[in-house]
């Protein structure tokens, strides 16, 4: 292996063959990269790691099943909650024949439909482990970007559609209880304030999640993708 030694400002020599002097100070000589590579390859990296492959296989399968169940439960839970609210509003609206409840049902129906479509679309776009590395990074990036989009626009697809129904219910309740005195009106106003705070809280938590977690993740993945792109993606 040929190499050269250059003089640096700090008066130390740099061996461009790739020497690893600090590692071999006791021997008083430097190690070439080939030697380092040979040591790396000769080293027992697994050490005392003994794995019962049957037990591991069972765990891996269990893990995969759990993951799929978890994803299914999450999607099912979110959609079911929205459908349930729609159903409750719808049933009350039919039973009580109140336009404000119909408006509430329509708002939560919109949210339910949006969530179902979004989940179905995301499931179709899910990547497989056999995809190339650039594809896997792209898929992760698309997921994160979509999550950011969802949370950033939560006001439009989740909060605002519920507002007309909620306002209508509060207004109609307020009108109906006009003869019952100030206390009832104050209670209704208090409920309205609690709803407003809850909506603001949901919005704030989601925007914080974007800043704290999703944006750094997106930047990290974009950096990864850029470092692969500059090398001419083949896969």
């Amino acid at each position: 292996m040929s190499g050269w030694v250059e003089r640096r400002d700090d008066d130390t020599d740099v061996d461009h063959r790739g020497s690893y002097c600090e590692l071999e100070i006791n021997r008083g000589d430097c190690m070439s990269f080939d030697e380092l590579q040979a040591r790396w390859q000769a080293h027992d990296h697994e050490g005392q790691l003994n794995i019962d492959s049957d037990a591991l296989l069972e765990e891996v399968r269990r893990n995969q099943r759990d993951f799929e169940k978890r994803m299914w439960r999450r999607d099912f839970g979110e959609v079911t909650a929205a459908v349930l609210v729609t159903f409750i509003f719808g049933t009350l609206a039919v039973l009580m024949d109140q336009w404000s409840l119909f408006l509430g049902a329509a708002g939560s129906l919109f949210v339910s439909i949006f969530m179902v479509f979004d989940r179905l679309k995301q499931r179709r776009q899910r990547t497989t482990v056999a995809d190339s590395l650039p594809s896997a990074i792209n898929a992760s990036l698309v997921q994160v970007q979509h999550q950011i989009w969802l949370l950033r626009n939560i006001l439009w697809w989740y909060l605002l559609p519920l507002v007309p129904g909620l306002v209508a219910i509060l207004v109609s309740t307020s009108r109906e209880s006009q003869g019952n005195g100030l206390a009832d009106q104050l209670v209704i106003a208090f409920v309205g304030l609690i709803c407003l705070l809850a909506f603001w809280g949901v919005y704030w938590i989601n925007q914080r999640e974007i800043t704290r977690s999703l944006e750094p993740r997106r930047m990290e993945l974009e950096e990864l993708r850029a470092s692969l792109s500059s090398g001419g993606i083949e896969g």
């Binding site: 690893y20 002097c21 590692l23």
Partner: peptide, 10 residues
Amino acid sequence: LNERLGGTKR
């Protein structure tokens, strides 16, 4: 790696 591992001595 050479620099990080201190390969500046000979």
